[in-house]
Design a binder for these strands. Structure first.
Lengths: 230, 230
DNA sequence: GAGCCGGTGTCATAAATCAGTCATACTGCT
DNA sequence: AGCAGTATGACTGATTTATGACACCGGCTC
């Protein structure tokens, strides 16, 4: 996993506790004490997940959440609300603001970690280190290996990331621009056509185990990874 | 194994019993009777494992555990809770404070010893003194020897630790940074590229028995120890 | 204390791989 | 056929690793 997490929690004790547990779980944590501080941090860095305390001094967590959800830059970042209240009403409210999940205090660190994992899996499956296997094509992020029906396949770094993204987002067309954003990164300036070249390299790499056809061209739209031969 | 163990147990009888058994098992044991004493000891020495009684006079074991878990200095030290209660609720609580394991009284010394071993293996597999053997490559931490198919191999201290780490964490890619943390130590300031050099030295040392290829380069990611030739 | 030595970290350079671009060939569709 | 979108092969600069050399350090010997 190893996600970058932004924690917004005013109570020092809890902040410390959470930071410790999350770090322990292999995450990179930045802790802030209020909404302003959090926003400041967000100006320079985009975390993978935001943990947001419900009650905060100044702008409340729920306000911050709404605000983030209205900014397209932060929109894709999963938000998990931490709340001390257990009322159903509040929970619903929390979700309506655009939070991806909420968790009621007191909670076990274990639970939190697993929720983070769940949220990441939903938003950015390629970030979880889970092994993916489709139609006999297997990609293991941990050992950084790809096998096609048992046979080892060689692919370069970019092809590996590309395949990983595809395998965690199958059956769906992605434009070249989207692929550039997702696989290369938002801040890269590269020709769109470069994607074609890497698609080709990926296909070549998958050729030995006849998995090349899983990468399908959708004329006028982009590419799709699909188990369907059609 | 031969670990340094800090025992925190207020009941003299049990303390003696445990100390005897653990010493018998080859460990170095320091016994303390309460949390304060334990903390004092910890200021000067970092043990490999902490055995913590649940009920203690003054600060309870669980409080001590939480406290230790919030101090990054003690963070990596495995903690095993000793508890007289068997309730599930308590167990969960104990784990949530950051304890690595718990064991319910009464327990057999044998069980305790094996749990210690397990916890050590989990936190830092290369700390257990167990002999490791992969593909005819054998590393014995006790005699500090390495053999490739019976043939003795010469490697320096750093290469030995590096190989030990790799052999206890196979089939997994590690970045240079991770290797520096794990093999050199967190507090060392060394160039990342230095890892390359030691990888090379390790490969050279494994050459005589043709085990060099177990150390694999994963371009753009780091290195991997793998029995797979692929 | 001088000199030797194994062990380490750094660096410069060579070698290996890769990424991005482009020109050109190819394809499917109208 | 004509057009727009893709595939392909080749090329070049850039990045990443491998390698050999070297300087430094602490311990030891004489």
């Amino acid at each position: 996993m190893a996600a970058n997490i932004l924690l917004v929690e005013d109570e020092p004790g809890i902040q410390e506790l959470l930071k410790f547990n999350l770090t322990q779980a292999g995450h990179q944590v930045t802790a802030t004490g209020d909404a302003e501080e959090a926003l400041k941090f967000l100006k320079t860095t985009l975390p993978d997940v935001i943990l947001l305390d419900w009650m905060l001094p100044g702008m409340s967590g729920i306000d911050l959440c709404r605000r983030l959800r209205n900014d397209e830059r932060y929109q894709p970042i999963p938000i998990i609300m931490l709340t001390a209240r257990g009322e159903e009403r509040d929970k619903v409210l929390g979700l309506d603001t655009g939070a991806d999940d909420y968790i009621t205090k007191p909670f076990s660190p274990r639970e939190l970690v697993s929720r983070i994992k769940a949220v990441l899996r939903r938003r950015a499956p390629q970030m979880t280190d889970e092994l993916v296997e489709i139609n006999g094509l297997r990609l293991d992020p941990i050992s950084h290996r790809v096998q096609g029906r048992g046979q080892a396949l060689e692919l370069g770094p970019t092809e590996f990331r590309l395949l990983h993204f595809f395998m965690t987002h199958p059956e769906r067309v992605y434009s070249r621009t989207q692929l550039l954003d997702q696989v290369w990164g938002d801040d890269v300036f590269v020709e769109e056509r470069t994607v074609d070249v890497h698609i080709r390299r990926l296909r070549l790499a998958l050729e030995p185990s006849a998995h090349a056809e899983l990468i399908q061209t959708v004329r006028g739209s982009g590419y799709r990874f699909s188990a369907d031969v059609g």
